[in-house]
Nucleic acid binder design. Structure first.
Length: 279
DNA sequence: ATTAATGTTCAGAA
DNA sequence: TTTCTGAACATTAA
């Protein structure tokens, strides 16, 4: 599930690791198929052990552990992955443990992933810059300007909801927050990007920032399957604020008309046909 | 038994 | 060139 607000919450939860040194990288005893680790488990151990953690970053929906010596460990949780310092939802599906310590304290980064679709990659700073350059991954959704957003999408013939999910246009928005922010902006998810006016782009941009920042304050959304947790294994709170996501048939909080579920690009979209008008 | 689920990435076709 | 579809990855709950 993790989209930008959930991954940003994970990032903040890992900040206590900064300053510690990597002591051990362990593949837990786990009957499942191991997750993808690039370039390899042995390479991770060889390159990381003994290095100190200099910072914790985020790029779109990925957590970045910055290491001394110009290395970065990128954790990409995809559908059901999460990182934690404290505990994980279930003992099985624990996929990686990184033990860290200094002379005063210790902590361990746990990577847990129910479906196991996530990827962990160790990259040099140069490889990182190349892989996440702006033509492969757009500007971060929290920092993109309204002009850059409009410039990147205004000639596209795609529906706005579909375009917002394109990580090469902007990084961080996923299926849940795309529906939510378009409801706040009062724009139909079916509108073609090339039909949107300047004022509408401004509304989308404002809603983008507002919704993501509000969701971060609530530490993200934990859906019915309970998979997502923050770094202390606590559920997020933003699911109680959802206006349309997974609320088909329930009244729109703005105009009381029932929320509708449609399918765009093979994924569910939720919107209010009453206050998100015009195709 | 079938279906859908928050994501990414590729191949192939329109 | 752009856009769309389907598939694959693996698990689980409805």
């Amino acid at each position: 599930m993790p989209e930008l607000p959930e991954v940003e919450t994970m990032r903040r939860g890992l900040l206590p690791l900064v300053g510690l040194t990597v002591r051990q990288v362990v593949q837990p005893p786990c009957q499942r198929r191991p997750i993808a680790v690039e370039p390899s488990w042995s390479s991770l151990r060889r390159r990381m052990i003994g290095r100190s953690i200099t910072g914790i970053g985020r790029v779109g929906k990925r957590v970045v552990v910055e290491l001394s010596g110009a290395w970065r460990l990128v954790v990409e949780p995809r559908m059901t992955g999460l990182v934690s310092l404290a505990d994980v939802p279930t003992p099985d599906h624990l996929r990686l443990i990184m033990r860290c310590a200094d002379e005063h304290r210790q902590a361990e980064l746990l990577y847990w992933d129910r479906r196991g679709l996530g990827i962990v990659r160790l990259l040099t700073n140069d490889e990182f810059t190349e892989r996440y350059s702006h033509d492969r991954l757009g500007p971060d959704a929290l920092s993109i300007t309204v002009d850059a957003l409009r410039d990147r999408l205004k000639t596209s013939r795609r529906a706005i909801k579909v375009a917002l999910l394109d990580q090469r246009a902007l990084a961080g928005v996923g299926n849940l927050y795309a529906s939510e922010l378009l409801h706040v902006a009062a724009i139909s998810p079916r509108r073609r990007c090339d039909s949107l006016r300047v004022a509408e782009w401004a509304a989308i941009h404002a809603a983008l920032v507002d919704v993501l920042e509000e969701a971060i304050r609530y530490e993200g959304s934990t859906l019915a399957d309970g998979t997502y947790r923050n770094a202390l294994n606590k559920a997020g709170g933003y699911q109680n604020c959802h206006r349309v996501y997974d609320r088909a048939g329930q009244p729109c909080p703005r105009c009381q008309r029932p929320v509708e579920r449609i399918v765009q690009a093979q994924r569910a979209t939720f919107y209010c046909p009453g206050c998100q008008r015009r195709k």
